[in-house]
Design a protein around this nucleic acid. Sequence first.
DNA 1: CTTGACCCTCCAGTGACTGGAGGCTTTATG
DNA 2: CATAAAGCCTCCAGTCACTGGAGGGTCAAG
Lengths: 128, 128
Amino acid sequence: MNIGEAAKAAGLPVKTIRYYEEIGLVRPARSENGYRVFAESDLHKLNFLGRSRALGFSIEDCRALLALYEDGTRSSSEVREIAERHLTDIEGKITDLQSLRDTLAHLVASCAGDERPDCPILDNLSGD
Amino acid sequence: MNIGEAAKAAGLPVKTIRYYEEIGLVRPARSENGYRVFAESDLHKLNFLGRSRALGFSIEDCRALLALYEDGTRSSSEVREIAERHLTDIEGKITDLQSLRDTLAHLVASCAGDERPDCPILDNLSGD
DNA sequence: CTTGACCCTCCAGTGACTGGAGGCTTTATG
DNA sequence: CATAAAGCCTCCAGTCACTGGAGGGTCAAG
């Protein structure tokens, strides 16, 4: 299976797959003409990577998760640790964004948004 | 005022201020020895930028906001538009992250996290 | 006079791709 | 059978907003 077909099957852009090979996440074989050849196991990995990235795991987390996936002797605690760290990270980001949102919402609400120059948003940004 | 002092006053790293000059957000004078010299108005701009960035505005948004701030004939609607777009953007990000968080939380909760290899997290990532 | 704290410029790296140039190979069509 | 389109290849540059470091000049204190 060539890269284009693999891309469709995995739901990833061709460029992304080449990139994943470059950083050693997948190692497809090569045919005589130099084209990458993807086996079922490669496809499986690409799907795994796509799902992990969609859950927001970093590339390095994905690399670790993939290694654990392929290691039959792993302990589930190692996986859970990575996921927990990521979860904590996301929760922190949510909190930060919510606080930003509240501030911004107040500012937007306080601004007339008409043709006059008076603007509480700018007042706030300039230090009141 | 030299860049170090300006950095302290504005609460920004020296490197960041140099970067802001490079991209034309501030234009401090120069003394004979080549050192940047920051006037009160420059400091004011740096503070404005720091606050805008802290609210998550992109550099280009900051540039636009700064221009509006310095334009006495602006209409507050222009400012409000930028802020509203940013607010919408943030709300979208919050929604996305919340959905990620929910999925991850479920996965983490379902994983024993012990020494055994069985792991619903990996099962999910590998496509069930 | 020297030490240390500043300051300068320029270059490279971050994360995770994405776009494009320039050039093969394969497949479909006239 | 020629050609054109599609698909593949590599390599380089750009994204965003900085950040780190090399290599070197300037200044105030002891």
